[in-house]
């Protein structure tokens, strides 16, 4: 089964690309540039939004545990996927969302469970694309310490 991920080159979907990078050893997925972002599974089945694309990739590579290891973790992953779409992507004021993330990460290395999941990929990708977060990082203001630690930890990993 060969999957084909077509990405919009003017607005690349970072979350989907990260997920594709993580599963490429397990699943045969090719990445191509194009006009619109979509994951071509078969002639009948295609996914257009980032959350569906990452969910599908996580499901076809269950051994990687990107969707959590039990139903509680799975629900937390769902929560952060929705959070990244609703509270971070394309929002002008993200400070309240950053505060929430900072609190959630206070006692955690990864957002969900003890290993990397879609939650980390999608929230990281949403932050990467946020001008406000870039400004806060550049200012070195010392706020959102836990979030900063988590963000730079992930940024230093090979696939990111």
């Amino acid at each position: 089964m060969a999957l084909n991920l077509i990405v919009n080159s003017s607005n690349p979907p970072l979350g989907a690309l990260l997920a594709a990078e993580h599963v490429k050893g397990t699943v045969n997925v090719s990445v191509q540039e194009g006009k619109d972002t979509k994951l071509h599974v078969s002639d009948q089945v295609q996914f257009n939004d980032v959350n569906s694309i990452t969910r599908y990739l996580a499901r076809v590579a269950p051994s990687l545990g990107l969707y959590g290891s039990n139903m509680l973790e799975q629900t937390e992953v769902d929560h952060w996927l929705e959070f990244s779409v609703r509270r971070l992507c394309g929002q002008s004021k993200v400070a309240p969302a950053l505060g929430e993330l900072d609190r959630a990460l206070a006692l955690r290395t990864f957002l969900v469970g003890h290993s990397l999941t879609l939650a980390d990929l999608c929230v990281w990708a949403a932050l990467k694309g946020s001008g406000e977060w870039q400004a806060i990082q550049a200012s070195k203001s010392g706020s959102f310490r836990h979030l900063y630690r988590w963000f730079s930890f992930l940024s230093s990993q090979a696939p990111f």
Partner: peptide, 21 residues
């Protein structure tokens, strides 16, 4: 739910997925 293990879940979609599981 199970607040020691799980963060609070926000959004009707995520809660619905949890209940259906």
């Amino acid at each position: 739910f199970s607040t020691q293990k799980m963060c609070p879940i926000e959004g009707e979609a995520s809660v619905a997925r949890f209940l259906f599981r």
